[in-house]
Design a protein around this nucleic acid. Structure first.
Length: 441
RNA sequence: GUGGUCAUAGCUCAAUUGGUAGAGCACUUGCCUGUGGAGCGAGCGGUUGAGGGUUCAACUCCCUCUGACCACCCCA
């Protein structure tokens, strides 16, 4: 008995808000990650990566107040450095891009899949550790880059088997909203200027879908918005893309979003996008088009993730201007989506074949077979112990391994093996070369 | 960070007004001496999330902590 067994046992639970990935969970994770990678590569994006600890000041300068003050894992390392675990990836992306800003050929199209940590109170669809796909394009001012980046989630959804009616991507434009709030509604401040009237009103507009009409009006009134202005705000929220057309000449944002729809129309993807003027998004660095994807499952209506254009992301590193547009997709909300719509496939094992061991005398022969199969690139599970065959077969069955090979004394004499197809419940006696041929198919 | 619900075997759940825990599934094993899924046995498995209190007696009542879930905040 060791010391632990008499004293209090250590919990087998993973850290709060974080998940263990057992092999079956890992299969699901890899399934999703592989689709993410496949789609990004299909769009000509290149993968990048970076350390998950960064200097604290990076996030202090770039992330929102809420994230820095409440949700950051922050500590001092043994060298006295003030460091933090990444709560998001965009600041690091800006750091790396700026580091080679003079030499990277543009446009820059990068994607990354990695985990981030936030000190959250966990609940459904939200933990403390989450994985995220980020894809970004830098150096393209034209709205074609927006269309390209925002096509990624649609392609991913298609690959995952999602249909048009299961999700929608709401899009709006911050420049347009700012123009409208300033010129038409006549509010003070800026949409990204924390504490100003316009900033606060923008936040209220963003949460409008979750509020009752009375609450919405009450909140606007408490920001000193007069009835005439409220009417203007409401007609903006209710507006459609035709409404925006008339501001094309006065607002670059109006041009951006109407152009976006024109291109999306020609690509046939416009049906996935809904113009929803109230979408603002939390991060202050967004400037142009912003999108937010929603799960349309009536039982699970929720925001899944989003993205947008940011024109001034590298300003903490350099005076040089570099425009960008990005999108991030989290694994936790995506999993909720897939479960809700029953889109998770049954994922088979990647082991192609299991080789049994008949008894101690034939063990070496079994290992020879195992080795030959592996040399041919066949994923081969060796049972390793000469226990009763029925136990070995049962194991293969439980693990979902399709083929089982038995080489007993009779087969060894004849130079053959028994190949059993567990799915079809058929068994054939073949020479090993034939087996390899069959398994390679 | 605020408010609410909850916590019994690996999983899903039982346990009558407080009288110190059971089932199904899973796992191991036998029926089955060269072959899986079914069936029927058997076994393993719990200081009832942790700590404290009330009581002759606590899974049950009270407090604290931890964790899960839900709403808010914020966001992926």
């Amino acid at each position: 008995m060791n010391k632990q067994s008499k004293q209090q046992k250590i919990s087998t639970q993973p850290y709060k808000g974080a998940r263990d990935f057992y092999p079956e969970d890992m299969r699901v994770r890899n399934y999703i990650f592989n689709i993410w990678k496949k789609v990004c590569k299909r769009y000509g994006f290149e993968e990048w990566d970076f350390p998950f600890i960064e200097p604290f000041e990076l996030f202090e300068a770039k992330s929102g107040d809420e994230i820095v003050n409440k949700q950051l894992y922050r500590f001092t390392d043994k060298g006295g450095r003030d460091v933090a675990i990444r709560p998001e990836k965009t600041p690091s992306l800006a750091r790396m891009i700026t580091g080679k800003i003079k030499t990277l050929p543009r446009p820059i199209k990068w994607f990354n899949i990695a985990n981030c940590w936030r000190f959250e109170k966990p609940q459904k669809g939200r933990g403390r550790e989450f994985f995220q796909l980020d894809c970004d394009i830098f150096g393209v001012k034209d709205v074609t880059a927006d269309v390209e980046v925002f096509s990624i989630p649609i392609e991913v959804m298609k690959e995952l088997g999602a249909k048009e009616n299961m999700f929608e991507i709401r899009i709006s434009n911050r420049r347009l909203a700012e123009y409208y709030l300033r010129e038409v509604v006549e509010l003070n401040g800026g949409i990204s200027e924390q504490g100003t009237q316009m900033y606060k009103v923008a936040r209220i507009i963003d949460s409008q879908p979750k509020l009752t009409e009375r609450e919405f009006l009450k909140q606007l009134e408490s920001e000193n918005v007069n009835p005439k202005q409220i009417d203007a705000i409401i007609s903006f929220i209710k507006s459609d893309i035709q409404f925006v057309e008339k501001y094309r000449d006065d607002s670059y944002g109006a041009k951006e979003i109407t152009d976006f729809f024109r291109i999306a129309e020609s690509l046939g993807s416009a049906k996935y996008f809904k113009f929803r003027p109230e979408i603002m998004r939390g991060f202050d660095y967004y400037t142009g088009n912003v999108i937010e994807q929603f799960d349309l499952d009536p039982a699970n209506k929720r925001s899944m993730y989003g993205g947008g254009r940011y024109d001034d992301l590298v300003n903490i590193f350099t005076d040089e201007k570099l425009t960008g547009v990005g999108y991030a997709m989290g694994d936790v909300t995506l999993m909720e989506f897939l479960k809700g719509w029953n889109l998770l496939p049954v994922l088979p094992t990647e082991t192609d074949v299991m080789v049994t061991i008949f008894d101690e005398n034939t063990r070496n022969k079994s290992f020879e077979i195992v080795q030959k199969l592996r040399e041919k690139g066949i994923n081969t599970f060796a049972y390793l112990e000469p226990v009763k065959l029925d136990k070995q077969f049962k194991y293969a069955d439980r693990k979902g391994i399709r083929y089982v090979i038995v080489a007993g004394l009779d087969e060894i004499k004849k130079g053959t093996v028994q190949l059993k197809d567990m799915q079809r419940k058929q068994q054939q006696e073949l020479v090993l070369e034939k087996v390899i041929e069959k398994l390679k198919q």
